[in-house]
Design a protein around this nucleic acid. Structure first.
Length: 283
DNA sequence: AACTCGGACAACCGCACTTAT
DNA sequence: CATAAGTGCGGTTGTCCGAGT
């Protein structure tokens, strides 16, 4: 599809924003909102393209932006989430209130990457198979070629798991195993799954009946009564935020798996090992 | 004091995806 | 269904500034 440039370059200003421009943008957004970024600069009297305005607002002017250095807790959270999500900066940012994807991306490249390289592989990588694309800082889309069905297509899984946090008035949609500490971070610490999850018998690990041509287990395998994890009733499905993929039948399985396991870090290692085993057998 | 280098961060670019027509 | 428009995301670049020489 042929597309027009994101903005007309002629006559539009680029580069650093001035305090005057910031004030105009803030005033306009506070007064009229930002339902249409493309039209906003014209209506606000800014010589900028809509994209530039949106970026400035989202990354700098938004009232809920938390400025200043990252705390140790925040850095640890970023590292842990990156182990699972890779370079999905917006998904990571959604778990760090007040921080932007751009900011996190910068911190990652300027601080954390170096630290990780010094420290070597992280602890959780010993337990969960992470695709190379995550560890090598490449595009996550490469994971579509992963030999691990669990992670092939993880873009959608993450969108399901990492959909933006609900507002403070909408706690009902937070998975009941997520909790915030006094720093405002979402806890992703490793926990001993044996303390939380029921004992899983041999039947649970039996090979699921597969849906033809889908590579995914049949719906009976997803039956709540057969699933020994907490109910996902309080969690909204992926795509509910209006962005990201819709939940199809296959992704629904992985979505349920993630949610029922209580979160990324808390997904029982046995399940991953079992599914990786089954996946390898099918290849 | 002048210059170089590298870190930090803001901003831009192009692509992908969703939505509207 | 096809296409255009709008938006979000991740990668990359540009710029500023402080430390070191």
């Amino acid at each position: 599809m042929v597309r027009a440039p994101c903005c007309e370059k002629m006559g539009l200003k680029r580069g650093p924003w001035t305090p005057e421009e910031d004030q105009i943008l803030i005033s306009y957004v506070q007064k009229y909102g930002h339902s249409n970024w493309r039209a906003l600069p014209k209506q606000a009297g800014l010589q900028r393209c809509g994209k530039s305005c949106r970026l400035r607002w989202v990354n700098y002017l938004r009232p809920d932006i938390k400025r200043g250095n990252f705390s140790k807790e925040e850095e640890e959270t970023i590292i842990k989430l990156h182990e699972v999500l890779g370079n999905r900066w917006s998904a990571i940012a959604s778990r760090l209130p007040g921080r932007t994807d751009n900011e996190i991306k910068n911190v990652w490249h300027t601080h954390l990457l170096k630290r990780l390289k010094q420290n070597g592989e992280s602890k959780s990588q010993q337990h969960i198979r992470i695709p190379d694309c995550h560890l090598n800082d490449n595009k996550l889309s490469q994971s579509a070629n992963s030999t691990v069905p669990f992670l092939s297509g993880c873009k959608s899984i993450e969108d399901a798991q990492m959909s933006p946090q609900p507002s403070s008035s909408d706690h009902s949609s937070i998975t009941d195993t997520s909790e915030t500490n006094n720093t405002g971070l979402i806890k992703v610490e490793n926990i001993d799954s044996s303390e939380i999850y029921p004992v899983i018998d041999e039947d649970f690990w039996s090979e699921p009946e597969m849906v033809e041509n889908s590579g995914m287990p049949s719906s009976s395998f997803l039956d709540d009564s057969q699933f020994p994890f907490p109910s996902p009733d309080t969690v909204e499905p992926a795509g509910c935020n209006g962005y990201g993929p819709k939940v199809d039948d296959n992704m629904g399985f992985w979505y349920n798996l993630f949610i029922k396991s209580g979160g990324i870090e808390e997904l029982p290692v046995q399940y991953l090992q079992r599914y990786n085993y089954l996946a390898d057998e099918r290849i």
